[in-house]
Design a protein around this nucleic acid. Structure first.
Lengths: 220, 220
DNA sequence: ATTATAAACGAACATCCGTTCGGTGTCAAA
DNA sequence: TTTGACACCGAACGGATGTTCGTTTATAAT
């Protein structure tokens, strides 16, 4: 039974957060003395006591007699909101007057010079993703700016309402629009609700080149 | 001039890989002695010599007199294909008719229910970031869609041309625009190059609430 | 052959650091 | 009131660790 001190769980949560923050700032875990300093604990054996409890509760693992030998377990990392990185290859540019580069079926990360690093929590299913950088102002109707990065997934076709990179044969133009198959014709709906859609009477003119999964704008 | 030993660059590449592998396996960097053991180098001063060279070449940083005080630089991490996750708290919504939630000065991740996980390589300096979700179509002139996520950094003021969340006192409105201080007046420039700017004659009407660092759109 | 430079090396030192130990204070239960 | 458990504490110890120093080896340039 304890009630002597401020909540022990509170203290131990602070220790976990201290470990996380220290790792984020310094790139390596704290020592027992680092933790004591950060949390205003005057004795290293108090920190050791709590670290032992955190280890028993499986929030951390410790490597004995090893400096900075503290490691967050998978549960500990999740509890602190830490996650998984997905590297998405940046294959090139997307511009109005050209079909986009589409990865070949045996595509892999080998030889890719640049990648965009996202996390699984914002990107979801990581399979087959690739990135294109927008070149020019031609995607404004999709509310996509010159320099934005578009994350794509290859697909031969999209369902009604999904946003795709579309190559229009007759216009020789790539556009990013929500695609609606309406009877025999195709409606290409801009993301900007104040703009009018494009209607294509011959669906064969419409080539779906990939589905848009995400847009990223690094603001300078 | 050297050619005495096996390629020094080869040795230093192995040291970098040793550091990466050690971190992936143990969750913390190796000591000088750990590296020596892994690579069959008999003297800690040889490792120290090479670590100094890697530091000068800016592949790593070292914290002096600190155990395991080795950190891969951004270049070093990229060179090894590693990334670092930054958790950005999602504090709430941004809409035209309200000032945005701004984190208090003693803000921390405590009590934050939702975070957006980004990587350092796309977000840069991770300090003090927070995220807001756009509600409504009022940010279209910034080419920002309902549902987009805006990554912000608190700042009392921005330099010419930087994009900020601006609260306009007289209009009682939040807007995202590039801010230009022109003599006694302020020009608020939309991101959409086809749209006209707003001019505010009284700079006191303009409250900078944060700088826009990034925009993320998860396309449904 | 000599010299200069770079890389490697062993040993030693001082500091860092994990861990232990004996102790204190607090509080609930007996 | 006494006891036991828990949390905190200071001090100390021994091992871990970074760093320095003087030396050796290898090789290219002269």
């Amino acid at each position: 039974m304890n009630g002597q001190r401020e909540g022990v769980e509170e203290q131990e949560r602070r220790i976990l957060e201290c470990i996380r923050d220290f790792i984020q700032e310094r790139g390596y875990p704290p020592t027992v003395r680092d933790i004591a300093r950060e949390l205003g604990i005057s004795s290293t054996s108090v920190v050791d006591y709590h670290l032992k409890r955190l280890e028993r509760a499986k929030w951390i693992e410790r490597d004995p007699r090893s400096s900075r030998g503290i490691r967050l377990t998978a549960a500990g990392a999740r509890g602190l909101g830490l996650g998984e990185i997905i590297s998405v290859p940046l294959l090139g540019d997307i511009a109005a007057g050209e079909p986009i580069p589409v990865p070949s079926s045996d595509f892999s990360l080998l030889g890719v010079e640049e990648t965009i690093e996202l996390t699984r929590s914002i990107v979801g299913d990581p399979r087959d993703l690739y990135a294109l950088r927008v070149r020019g102002n031609s995607m404004i109707d999709a509310m996509i700016h010159d320099g934005d990065i578009v994350i794509m997934r290859p697909t031969p076709s999209v369902e009604n309402g999904e946003m795709a990179a579309v190559w229009l044969e007759d216009r020789e133009e790539t556009t990013l629009k929500r695609v609606y198959w309406e009877g025999g014709r195709v409606r290409l709906q801009p993301a900007n609700p104040t703009m009018a859609p494009i209607y294509v009477d011959d669906p064969r003119q419409v080539k779906i080149q990939g589905k848009v999964v995400m847009v990223i704008r690094q603001v300078r």
